[in-house]
Design a protein around this nucleic acid. Structure first.
Lengths: 157, 157
DNA sequence: GTCATTTGTATCGTGCACGATATAAGCGAG
DNA sequence: CTCGCTTATATCGTGCACGATACAAATGAC
């Protein structure tokens, strides 16, 4: 029942681990975006929602969640805040009262159009050749699709 | 003063953006770790602190923060929770009363040793060749070091 | 020595993330 | 039709992240 069949592992530097690097870079990008998003009055997850709606408007909460890999317990309050901010509207779908359709307001479209200009601005600020950034995007995207497919392990360490 | 000198950008899919992929994969990894960390009674950031302390014990809050790219406003309450859980101890440094030295308790060392076995367990669960994972680690680590060096832009979008 | 400045840590408020739970609408078997 | 089941969204509690603020210890100018 115990776990003493495994080696006592030597010291590990988090900075050499893939998951920590992803964790740290994700937060670092968030901080990097913030001074650009601040004047728009939105947060980084809200920025993602705006882009996702600009990409495909008038969709259910679940559809947004599948694209952004977020559950409704995260999206519901987030969308409520965006509704209060006048960025999105929410309406019950007529033929299925369970569904809530989220759509950009006029103001939301305006902010989303400005938000859509940001990625180019960001990439040009980074001190890394574009080919490397493309390669990073490709491999991290591959990780995303892989992790979306497989189930987490159940074995205790 | 305005921003109408930029092109109206066409639609953008978040899934094609580097920053979203990093954001999504970071959360996905967190979810992936959780069922393994749960029996140890720790969260993912606490797991990182245990590994960092196992790598170099008896260090100040700021030293931990620099390694994990976290500020004290995140670490202080986190370390307090870990102290309550009996994983770490905190003592004021004698010759500089501002500094707080964090160290692993006996129980903390035990949990950290088990935590150190996890990365291998995780990597073996992933459906991706090891060379690709190494390549991912290398390029994301490069992004981390780059973002740690440069300042965020100040230009509004 | 004295006081302004810097350094190291902690506290507070807000907004995610997410597990657990709730609830209401659709759906299906009988 | 009705009851059980699934689906879609919302709510609540906890723990991060992080900007803003506070404060005490160290440092330095004088």
């Amino acid at each position: 029942m115990s776990q003493n069949n495994a080696e006592a592992p030597e010291t590990i530097d988090p900075q050499a681990m893939l998951c920590f690097n992803l964790y740290a870079v994700s937060h670092a990008f968030n901080r990097f975006y913030q001074p650009i998003l601040d004047p728009l009055g939105i947060t980084y997850p809200q920025y993602l929602v705006l882009l996702a709606l600009r990409h495909e408007d008038k969709r259910g909460v679940g559809s947004l969640g599948r694209e952004l890999m977020l559950d409704t317990n995260t999206l519901s309050p987030l969308l409520k805040r965006m509704e209060i901010a006048g960025l999105v509207g929410r309406t019950r779908q007529a033929d299925d009262e369970r569904r809530v359709l989220v759509h950009l307001t006029e103001r939301g479209q305006e902010i989303a159009a400005r938000a859509a200009q940001i990625p180019d601005c960001i990439l040009s600020c980074l001190d890394m050749p574009e080919s490397d950034l493309q390669q990073a995007t490709e491999i991290v995207s591959r990780l995303r699709r892989m992790l979306a497919d497989i189930d987490p392990p159940k074995t205790p360490a």
